[in-house]
Simulated assay, not measured.
Amino acid sequence: MSVRTGLVAATALAAAVAMAVPAAAAPAGGVRAGHSATQEAMDAAVKDGVPGVTARAKDARGVWKATSGVGDLRTGKPRSAEDRYRVGSVTKTFVATVLLQLEAEGELSLDDKVEKWLPGVVRGNGHDGRKVTLRQLLNHTSGIFNVTQDKTFIERYFAKDGFFEHRYDTLTPEDLLAYAMKNEPDFDPGMSWNYSNTNYVLSAMVIEKVTGHWYGDEIRARIIEPLGLRATIVPRTDPTMPHPSSRAYGKLARETTGPTYDVTEWNPTLAYGGGNMISDSADLSRFYTALLRGRLLPQKQQQELTATVDTSDPKRRYGLGLTDVELSCGIHVWGHVGDIYGAHTVALTTADGRHSLAFNFNGDWSGDSKAVIEAEFCRE
């Protein structure tokens, strides 16, 4: 789920916003050879307006952890390399993995129509679940309207007044779908590509229909516990953050100027399967490394996972809850980006799982995350 594609027009490459923050914190363990450019890119993000950055990389040299900036603008407390944070749309990879596991077990087929599992749910203004497959949900070729682009949803949950009035609301998946179904589809199923959080609200609902369990319980039992992801949770309605963690900051406006607000607390049902999870850099790297190395899926489903389609960016292709990004140096990295209130998260690994990077900005309106990625993977 994305704040940046909702109310705030900025992206990870947005123009910087001047903000008074303390000097960049030193990396945990010191800057090692090979990661100094990554540290410099993190420091530059702080100078450009991001309150703070926490990151972890793992390669043949071992593990490198670093921070820059602060985790609390009021106290000046620095970010921690062990920070937990909201991962936004990184949640989508977990959801897609569970659906692929269910297919491997013979419980469903990704070529099933949504209507088979959620009869009558995808209806309204041209939407028709009888024409959309589960695969099209996962790779964003369904054409289903993105709930976070609905004007009423934006004003109610992304704008300042609406957010502070409604951030503790508990929404059902049906509530989220009602916002989406008020709008026309973006295109006919399979005819194009457009990122839609609604696809993963529906995907989570399918998991629940097939298994009889809340989708978060399935993620925990199938991924979190087997991989020993101790910092990773799928919260239900608890608006607070576990410790250790930093505060999260946003603008809650269409512009990237103006006041900065603490947006740390909000009810995770606002994002549901599109982006409600919490994790840390170590767990995210462990997850994507295991996933790309085939530890979570049989070969057939692994091939489906990494079968990509074109997006609007020629350097970026989308699989099933997984993005393939070609960097300027020609290296391909796989993973996902997550944008949510006060958080911008990136988790990537090379296809062989040997080199991984996960990091988080605790601000949602500025900072060049692409520069951090390029510095880490294109340093050779």
Results as ranks from 00 to 15, higher is better:
residue 68 S to K: 10
residue 124 G to C: 12
residue 261 Y to L: 04
residue 162 G to K: 14
residue 152 T to W: 06
residue 300 K to N: 03
residue 25 A to Y: 09
residue 95 V to L: 03
residue 270 L to H: 14
residue 80 S to F: 07
residue 200 Y to I: 01
residue 274 G to K: 09
residue 290 A to W: 08
residue 314 P to G: 01
residue 303 Q to K: 09
residue 295 R to K: 11
residue 87 V to S: 11
residue 146 N to H: 14
residue 196 S to T: 04
residue 286 R to Q: 06
residue 262 D to R: 08
residue 3 V to Y: 10
residue 299 Q to T: 08
residue 345 T to M: 03
residue 378 C to S: 02
residue 336 H to T: 06
residue 183 N to Q: 13
residue 16 A to G: 12
residue 247 R to W: 05
residue 218 E to G: 04
residue 146 N to F: 09
residue 157 Y to N: 13
residue 23 A to P: 06
residue 339 D to H: 14
residue 127 H to R: 05
residue 378 C to V: 02
residue 349 T to E: 00
residue 88 G to F: 04
residue 265 E to C: 07
residue 25 A to P: 05
residue 334 W to N: 12
residue 46 V to D: 06
residue 261 Y to K: 03
residue 106 G to H: 04
residue 223 I to Q: 09
residue 317 R to C: 01
residue 347 A to S: 15
residue 251 K to F: 01
residue 285 S to G: 13
residue 109 S to N: 03
residue 174 E to P: 00
residue 78 P to D: 12
residue 268 P to R: 02
residue 323 T to K: 11
residue 2 S to I: 07
residue 26 A to H: 14
residue 228 G to P: 07
residue 125 N to C: 06
residue 71 G to C: 10
residue 130 R to G: 11
residue 272 Y to F: 11
residue 356 S to W: 08
residue 231 A to V: 06
residue 107 E to I: 00
residue 187 F to K: 08
residue 300 K to S: 07
residue 342 G to R: 04
residue 218 E to I: 04
residue 179 Y to W: 08
residue 332 H to T: 12
residue 22 P to E: 15
residue 253 A to N: 10
residue 257 T to A: 12
residue 328 S to A: 15
residue 84 R to F: 02
residue 281 S to K: 11
residue 232 T to I: 10
residue 108 L to T: 02
residue 129 G to T: 12
residue 167 R to L: 01
residue 48 D to G: 12
residue 219 I to A: 07
residue 40 E to V: 10
residue 192 S to C: 01
residue 220 R to D: 15
residue 180 A to V: 09
residue 331 I to D: 14
residue 99 L to C: 00
residue 245 S to W: 11
residue 271 A to Q: 01
residue 299 Q to S: 07
residue 370 K to T: 13
residue 339 D to R: 12
residue 370 K to S: 13
residue 202 L to N: 04
residue 233 I to P: 03
residue 307 A to K: 14
residue 82 E to A: 13
residue 121 V to S: 01
residue 100 L to C: 09
residue 248 A to W: 02
residue 298 P to N: 05
residue 56 R to K: 12
residue 211 T to E: 03
residue 131 K to R: 13
residue 268 P to E: 00
residue 224 I to Q: 13
residue 136 Q to Y: 05
residue 198 T to H: 03
residue 25 A to E: 14
residue 368 D to P: 07
residue 207 I to D: 01
residue 97 T to N: 10
residue 258 G to C: 06
residue 222 R to C: 09
